[in-house]
Design a protein around this nucleic acid. Structure first.
Lengths: 209, 209
DNA sequence: GTCTATATAAGGATAGAC
DNA sequence: GTCTATCCTTATATAGAC
């Protein structure tokens, strides 16, 4: 029996996506070159153009690969919460945060992706924002509806503002952009702590009179 | 009388800083080239190296120019708040937020700088973070002390976490990274609104049990 | 202090053999 | 589907005239 059957087969395409994700997280989209990406992935430089056509398309594929399942998991978690007799603001927030956390824990390179996602916010690039809006928007709307039900006294505009702030704080916290020094604990534990604190903080902020 | 005495004199150095700030805000540090910068500033390409030595040093100078006065204003505002008989969490938050807002309103290109600042968070660049920590740290510590006094029941570690979240949400909000669409109102008004909402939100989050 | 010209390196992308 | 080799553009940086 071929021993190679026991190890997963990482295609060139996958390896490029993994390396691109990690390098975009670390150096930004403009800061990471295709030469760095292909060197890190141990593939030929020309492979990027063969498989993705261009750097810009590679960037899009880096997002698409993770966002689909992330959105799906978030919506599933939200449904689970909503199916219960009663649920709290914290429950809905957790449904939003936890899939991002488990993504960054379970999947190889997932930790890098949440940083890539955070970088995307900083890019005022129209195309990228439209891409995110199209892929992110629908799921966000579901959450907004859930929040609106839990906060019936909040004006709609006010709610949107607060959700925008939550979304920013969340992105920032999970991407570990803060200045808090990690001492002794792993990156993963740090992220868990960040999420925990964030949920408490955000729930209070959303409930503010 | 020389008519030129009536118009401010914008030196080559200043024009480079202004253009660099705007372009770094828009395209990031790696994304904006010195050629774009010098073209936008209407100066010769070689001028950057003459005045700043290197691109990296230019980046540092972009920060230094604004951070000094921003920190100063923040600390002055904090002192003014603390000199009163009593003051609220919201007052301290405003002391932190308002200088950043007025910077982005009053000064030409100031709006760009808050975005540059936000970009710096996304850069996990060690050097840049050290630079920010050295220049930002002391002022932040003063604010942390003020918050600690207003929240005596909060554990120290818990406070740090929350301040980190506040700082992230703040950076994000003022830099206008959110997905909320501006309809009819100016960028300036949008920023004011963001700050207003943010202060309310953050105060509630900090007070959370 | 500001210019032109250029050195030198790195970038994205492609053509064409295998 | 993967390689080498190369095109062409852009990048940072500098040398040297003015």
């Amino acid at each position: 029996m071929d021993a190679s059957l026991n190890v997963p087969h990482f295609s060139t395409k996958q390896r490029i996506l993994d390396s691109a994700e990690a390098l975009f997280a670390r150096h930004g989209f403009a800061g990471a070159s295709l030469r760095q990406v292909t060197a890190s992935a141990n593939v030929n430089l020309a492979a990027v153009n063969y498989h993705f056509g261009s750097k810009e398309n590679l960037i899009n594929e880096v997002f698409r690969r993770r966002l689909d399942s992330l959105n799906e998991q978030r919506l599933r978690a939200l449904e689970a919460v909503q199916s219960r007799k009663d649920f709290s603001l914290e429950d809905v927030l957790a449904a939003f945060v936890r899939p991002a956390l488990s993504l960054s824990h379970d999947q190889e390179g997932g930790a890098g992706f949440v940083r890539v996602l955070a970088r995307a916010y900083a890019e005022h690039n129209e195309q990228l924002r439209k891409f995110l809006h199209d892929n992110y928007g629908p799921a966000l709307k579901q959450f907004a509806t859930a929040f609106a039900r839990l906060l019936p006294d909040l004006e709609k505009q006010e709610l949107y503002w607060r959700l925008d702030i939550v979304s920013g704080a969340l992105t920032y916290a999970i991407a570990d952009f803060g200045m808090i020094k990690r001492r002794g604990i792993s990156e993963q534990q740090h992220r868990d702590l960040a999420a925990e604190h964030l949920i408490k903080f955000a729930a209070a902020g959303l409930r503010a009179a």
